[in-house]
Design a protein around this nucleic acid. Structure first.
Lengths: 235, 235
DNA sequence: AATCGAGTTTAGTTTGGCTTAAATTTGGCT
DNA sequence: AGCCAAATTTAAGCCAAACTAAACTCGATT
């Protein structure tokens, strides 16, 4: 009856980890930061998690003791294979949740990240699996980020930055690579989201604005910083 | 970007409470225990939450300082109006979640309580509201417990214990009043769940078994302890 | 009226996750 | 070569929430 018993049972069901949500959020963060730079610095991790670098440093040491991250002092952290597996599970849940909140629950696409973050360490495997089924085993979250498989593999795709293409190349938007919800809201309001087709018609020099034309014939002008977030698949 | 900022924002959105999940679970537990005996004893609360009575005692004192419970030393706790409002919100979320997990996500009815408990302090108001809409503003959770309204009112019904009715009275099951999932699983397998119609055909003396007949003509025999959990509405 | 045991509270300790402040390392620059 | 600023780690301490062990209340019973 008491929840102490239930906790013990749950620990038994998922034998590989006694990790609480703090640890899971650290692993998740390290994974995402390492994607970009190959490793994650203490300060970056701390900033992402909203704690001080000293706090993050201590926590990283503990994660290293548990064999979840490989830590080179003063040089940042990389996930071990074990840590990577766990991080990918959390990321899978996060992105499935985003898709679920968006498609099933009717959240706006700029709202889903925050709430998925709160839920990602709480839902159980059954919830994860049912979302996956209900959504038809989706490849991507609403922003276009890839959803790892249950076995921890990332789908292989060839998303390229919109701005890497020659002018006038027609392409399909695949990912808006930001977590800033205000930017997402803005871009969404312009009709810029995964699935829409467009071409670049002008790139102003000196980091000036980028002009796009959608397949519906509309013209959109974006600052360079926003345009850089758009990943596409050329047609 | 950092989640520290997000947390501050959230605190601003829900001004009435800086309560963490621990406090919410305490309030929820006190509410449910008080429903039965009028107040909740330290030991009962501790048992429900899987902590020691001394731990619960300390926590109760803190909740009393915050004006959420009224505490008479050595005599147990009662919720204040403020505490009751908050408890009812958690209970609403719990029961909506149970209904949601059952009807939308396809969980088995004996699985929903545990997972709803994990989620009830994590979901936000929007998630709550969307579940409510998707379920058509349900009155009860899958076990038949009542779902308080958003404004903190309990629906008024007249559920009566099955065993309080004269023999052969036809009635509809409205609630199976237990949280033991093994019993729920067993009763569900017998077809005994809210909505089914039945009558008592025999009550053996000396706390002996109770024999029921369903409208489908099937006969079910139950131990007294289980039969006592069944609440019905006479036809 | 005194006592006993169940229930409850207090005292003192532990653990996890954080903080600030002080040391330390690193890499770039003169 | 040496020095500085930024990044990082260590040191010391705080707070919430739990624990065990010991002390205390209450009411029932002799």
């Amino acid at each position: 009856m008491g929840s102490a018993k239930k906790l013990a049972e749950r620990a038994h069901q998922e034998p590989d980890l006694n990790l609480n949500d703090t640890a899971l959020h650290y692993l998740d963060t390290i994974y995402r930061l390492s994607e970009r730079h190959g490793s994650a610095s203490t300060t970056e991790i701390a900033a992402q998690l909203g704690v001080t670098p000293s706090g993050a440093s201590i926590m990283l040491k503990r994660l290293a003791e548990r064999g979840l991250v490989q830590l080179t002092p003063y040089r940042g952290a990389v996930l071990t294979e074990h840590g990577r597996r766990i991080a990918l599970r959390t990321i899978r849940r996060h992105r499935l949740l985003e898709a679920f909140l968006y498609h099933v629950m009717g959240f706006a696409w700029h709202e889903v990240d925050e709430h998925a973050h709160a839920l990602e360490t709480v839902i159980n495997e059954r919830f994860e699996d049912r979302m996956d089924e209900m959504l038809g085993h989706p490849l991507r979250c609403p922003h276009g980020h890839l959803i790892p498989s249950k076995t921890g593999e990332m789908p292989v795709v060839n998303d390229v930055p919109l701005l890497s293409l020659p002018l006038h190349t027609r392409s399909v938007v695949r990912c808006i690579d930001t977590s800033r919800d205000d930017w997402l809201e803005y871009l969404g309001a312009q009709g810029l989201m995964p699935g829409c087709q467009l071409q670049v018609v002008e790139v102003a020099p000196y980091n000036g604005p980028v002009t796009l034309r959608t397949d519906a014939g509309e013209t959109i002008s974006l600052g360079r910083n926003m345009a850089e977030l758009i990943l596409v698949e050329p047609l």
